[in-house]
Design a protein around this nucleic acid. Structure first.
Length: 426
RNA sequence: GGCGGGUUGCCCGAGCGGUCAAAGGGAGCAGACUGUAAAUCUGUCGCGCAAGCUACGCAGGUUCGAACCCUGCACCCGCCA
């Protein structure tokens, strides 16, 4: 794949540019040779989530375009907490932050390439230069360059002051992140910081700090915050929680399913944001979606590409096969044993013994499809419970030996798309 | 430190001695319609088959009876010449 298009033009058509400092100046610097750019990720959870991938993939894109990415794990900033509208964060303990920072660092490393070339990636943790900084040093060297007037007029700060107020700790977050940019500029000649548009203020803080202290002009570029067509924040799964990169938190199957279910109104935009597919291919998928929406070609492509990107080709093959088996038109009984076993390996499963005469309710609970027996019973009465694709309307229904697929599995489903397995032992 | 306000179910938020498992909204779940989509409409939404149990920051107390009253504690917020 030859890239003839300028990286800024690509970012632009993909919808990845929300705000920026002087784009012409940035273009000139990009053209002048490998530029060093960074994005930071704070350890606010044990894993990155899908939404984090927008800025992270921007680093990957920049690297592919011949530039050098720095991924930063916010071991220091994560101890302080970026102010948000919902109110003051509660601080996490130091070992929790350190552990999360490590895990996130491991995830970050998978999206950029490390080699000895000028475009080889660098991974840093801002605790490296912040941990040993003394308060006096910090207040004199960094704090002195920040105008309280400007800080107080920032959107988030204003809103917070009108609502619940804000601690000095969170208020100073801006200084830390700005300081990071200065450090990376000095250590690595980093002249571009990217991030989600909610980071604009923090990034600009760094741009100004570098200008004031080192009299250098560096760039800022943000990507729009990803929302769905309803304006809801992206990455909330239908189960309400986040869609996590960590396969322990969100299985590859669940990840794939999440993206297969993306609405028509969002899927093309997501393809641009989250995949490396070239423009022509995305245009073709857009046409497919318009002409033959029921085939969901764009959704399937998005899900497959994105699963491969995060979990690898092998995982994608497995979850595609499992999805095909479980959502296919055919009878579940027609699946051969190895296909069924493979599918069952991808979905949540439970176990039961035939001798215990488990009812549908038991099956729904043990497979994890229902949180309580009451919820399971409700599902059955609402007509939303299926065993082996057969709707079960009777709470007391119990499987017979002949219902077992290949002598050991029952495929339990709640609603249209929540599928799980129960392994039945004698 | 002083004075005042607050802490309710996943979230927001009402309740201010009984009829409160707790209004309303959002989210979630299910059904219908579909395309494993969206929108819409309907139902549902602490645990338990039930009796009942557990719940309104934590711990005690008053009362026949407390989310609602009292005491102490914790945390949050506002104001302080």
């Amino acid at each position: 794949m030859t890239v003839t298009e300028h990286i800024l033009d690509e970012l632009s058509w993909r919808g990845l540019i929300a705000q920026s400092t002087d784009l012409d100046a940035l273009r000139r610097d990009l053209d002048a040779g490998p530029l060093t750019t960074y994005v930071g990720f704070d350890p606010t959870a044990p894993s990155l989530h899908a939404g984090n991938l927008v800025p992270l993939l921007m680093l990957t894109r920049l690297q592919r375009a011949g530039h050098r990415p720095i991924v930063l794990a916010g071991g220091a900033t994560g101890m302080i907490g970026d102010p948000r509208d919902q109110g003051e964060r509660s601080l996490n303990s130091l070992d929790v932050v350190a552990e999360w920072a490590d895990r996130i660092r491991g995830q970050l490393e998978r999206f950029v390439d490390f080699d000895d070339s000028p475009t080889g990636a660098v991974v840093v943790n801002n605790l490296e230069w912040t941990g040993g900084l003394s308060v006096l040093e910090f207040l004199r060297d960094v704090g002195k360059h920040f105008s309280l007037n400007v800080m107080l007029s920032r959107e988030t700060v204003r809103r917070r002051l009108e609502a619940d107020g804000m601690s000095f700790t969170e208020f100073s977050y801006l200084l830390l992140q700005s300081h990071d940019y200065l450090q990376l500029f000095r250590k690595y000649g980093c002249t571009l910081q990217m991030g989600g548009s909610d980071q604009w203020g923090n990034i600009i803080g760094g741009v100004e700090l570098v200008r004031r202290i080192d009299s250098a002009s560096v760039h800022a570029l943000t990507a729009p915050l990803v929302t769905d067509a309803e304006g809801r924040k992206f990455g909330k799964s239908t189960g309400g929680g986040n869609v996590w990169l960590d396969p322990e938190l969100t299985s590859p199957y669940a990840w794939y399913q999440y993206f297969v279910n993306v609405g028509d109104a969002d899927v093309i935009r997501y393809l641009r944001l989250f995949t490396f597919l070239p423009r022509e291919e995305i245009d073709a998928l857009e046409k497919d979606t318009a002409d033959r929406p029921h085939l969901r070609a764009a959704q399937k492509r998005l899900a497959a590409e994105f699963t491969t990107l995060v979990h690898g080709q092998h995982a994608t093959d497995q979850v595609v096969a499992a999805s095909g088996a479980l959502f296919g038109r055919g009878e579940l009984g027609d699946l051969d044993a190895s296909t069924l076993d493979a599918a069952m390996a991808e979905v949540p499963t439970g176990a039961a013994r035939l001798a215990d005469k488990p009812t549908v309710v038991d099956l729904l609970v043990s497979s994890g499809l229902a949180d309580s027996r009451g919820a399971a019973r409700r599902a059955v009465n609402e007509g939303g419970a299926y065993v082996n694709n057969q709707r079960i309307a009777d709470e007391e229904w119990s499987p017979a030996a002949g219902d077992l697929l290949h002598g050991r599995w029952l495929v339990v489903r709640r609603g249209k798309r929540s599928t799980a397995g129960v392994e039945i032992r004698p």
